[in-house]
Design a binder for these strands. Sequence first.
DNA 1: TCCCTGACTTAGCATCCCTCCT
DNA 2: AGGAGGGATGCTAAGTCAGGGA
Length: 536
Amino acid sequence: MRLKSLPFFLRAIKAKKLKLDKKTTTEVKTSSPVKTESKAKKTKKEKEETSDEPPKKKKKGEEEQEVWRWWEEQREDTNIKWDFLEHKGPVFAPKYEPLPKNVRFYYDGKPMELTPDTEEVATFYGRMLDHDYTTRDVFNTNFMKDWRKVMTDEEKAKITDLKKCNFTEILDHFKKKSEERKNLSKEEKQAIKKENEEIVQIYGYCKIDKHVEKIGNFKIEPPSLFRGRGDHPKQGMLKKRVNPEDVIINCSKDSKIPEPPAGHKWKEVRHDNTVTWLASWTENIQGATKYVMLNAASKLKGEKDMKKYETARALHKCVDKIRATYQEDWKSKVMLVRQRAVALYFIDKLALRAGNEKEEGETADTVGCCSLRVEHLKLREEKGGKNYVVEFDFLGKDSIRYQNSIPVEKRVFKNLQLFMENKQPEDDLFDRLNTSILNKYLQELMEGLTAKVFRTYNASKTLSEQLELLTNGEDGVAAKMLSYNRANRAVAILCNHQRAVPKTFEKSMENLQNKVSFIRSANFPFSVGKNSVERP
DNA sequence: TCCCTGACTTAGCATCCCTCCT
DNA sequence: AGGAGGGATGCTAAGTCAGGGA
């Protein structure tokens, strides 16, 4: 399957012939406008779609909204995102429910009663006791500092050492509660489910330009301890409760303005139709704005997604020229041009991210292409029988380690030597370059071209090439699935998509081994495939 | 040009929930 | 029925990129 035939692939997915693996397809997934459903429902629906019989009458409450086939409509390119927008506002986190009296917190071996605010924050820590986070110094220090801020003077005077705090009864309490929830009767579970569905019915949808569309995240993030990834300097800090007074509502003037919860006011109600968000608030850890936005299957998101792939297709048409240009630029007399050319080569060849600058000490120390430092690569004139090898070793987005050795053209190698000359390990490799310069240049090469388009393009191309290579028209469904998973895996490797080894890994591996042994001994004629790139 | 910020996408982890097997 | 397995979904952190102001 070549790139130009990708629309067929999209259609196949829309028709739900293939299931996409979320892990490996972010760069290549489609904006499938048909909402995803559970496997069982899919099978049922597929039957309905392919059957000649009229669809069976749906039970009450099961009627589906007719799908708005926005992707078949004419699109206009404007920064106006909507003409009408009405919604009920976000759902706030439930109020804190104090612990029952028999669940105690101990300080220095003695039970200690906490005021509700202090207790609430203690429960955030208590329920994370089993997690690796609570073994980290940074997490604990940050937690203690923020916890003390909510304590009364009396509590503050007493609770000074986290090591003397015992939260185990709190953890046990929540474990017990979750166990109880699991053991509820079918009817009780149904009742809870129904209640949740009612909330979704009210708050989970909005009316936008005569269409009802699903909201992606209508629930405001509950208070908790900040779980920054990797070596995050702010991990363990208290993420505060968000109140209506913190929330800005965005909707159209002529809509029914959402009611704030009783006794509360919104921070602001605005009517800005140049943006897609319905509500926003500022989070207290990094000061970043959080948004309530539409679901991925909505027109607003889907159209944007579609455009992304169109841009990638446009790149396909001129990528040869761009590659020739940057190879030529490796010889440039201007240092910036050389650096830009080598950086672009990495972005293209290795699917690296752009690499914006980050404020030191505010986040984990991670880098992308433009922010690579001398310490992140090693140059080997010869390695494993290959010449001019570059070894990369750095932490990328989400502190996922990127480790890769690649042979490069001699000219690239010599350039890298030049860029690294007389520099300290912590110095920038591309000291003349940043993402802004790079993207401005890319914009000159092609309208809408930015660094991330290369990732989308190369991921999509890899997937389609792999599918072409691995599949055979006569293959059965199982074989097609296997090929599809393998193709996806190739994309995961290219994009360095990784996931932690699941906690139950060893157990399930053992079970799998047993099955394999059994199958081998019985001489079964089939193989088992798995597609995930797990971290070592 | 630099810096900051707002808006939006990308992506890993947690949890839910369905299916299949015992 | 109960539990394991694993995909789907939910949640939210962490990126990208553009635009505006100094």
